[in-house]
Amino acid sequence: MAGETLLKIDNVSRSFDLRGTVVHALKNVSLQVPAGSFLALIGPSGCGKSTLLRLLAGLDTPDAGALSVNGVDPFTLRQQGSIGMAFQDPALLPWRSVRKNIALPLQILKRNLDEYSARIQSLIELVGLSGFEDAVPGQLSGGMRQRVSIARALVTEPNILLLDEPFGALDEILRRQMNLELQQIWMKRRPTTVLVTHAIDEAIALADSVAVMTSRPGRVVEVVQIDLPRPRTTEMFRSTEFHAIADHLSELLFTHATA
């Protein structure tokens, strides 16, 4: 399958056995987006978004179906160190400072840390944590920890970026700011990105395509293309186009949630 430049999710199913009852976290999910594009996953909680992201990260294997990016399976991708991921829970090493937590993926890939000190510092500034370089996670608020984990996901400049509700714990203003920053970063190198989010406006602001998911069983009901030009600005959030898309998405979410 060489030459394919796709993120491809092919008929993937994953279920969990919870003390006898089977939960279909994902059932026959198929999805294709071009490599280098930005995909958002949106849907009610429990519809399998995190499960799908973990499958893409090679942290879990599907019961059926296959996933790949440019023809390479997630397991191999993660061993190559091509994946940057921010988990729904920040999962920082509690004994490491902010700076050292961000440096962790570089250490794992056995890079020479001295060459990266400038990049680490600029990431710290980017996520608004200047002055907290030497703080440990226990001294940070939930939102700050989450920002550390975003910086950590970005530090290796990965080809595949997986973000699981990374801005969930942030206040509205900061969230908007971080959205714009993320767009900047993404436009510079265009990593294949999958963002899980609850927020419709965030999905539209950032994504090339939005996959709307629903639960029991977890599946994709529709993939909506977002053809707004880039860079997307805060003014666009007030445009009629933007609102039309937002209305469409919320209708999809609402009808399937009550169905």
Binding site: R78, Q80, S82, G84, M85, F87
Partner: peptide
């Protein structure tokens, strides 16, 4: 904490790295 092990694995780390870090 299993989440910490996943952070290491997703960054390309092996079991050895999970042990070390």
């Amino acid at each position: 904490d299993p989440r910490l092990a996943e952070v290491i694995r997703v960054s390309g780390g092996t079991d050895r790295d999970v042990m070390r870090f």
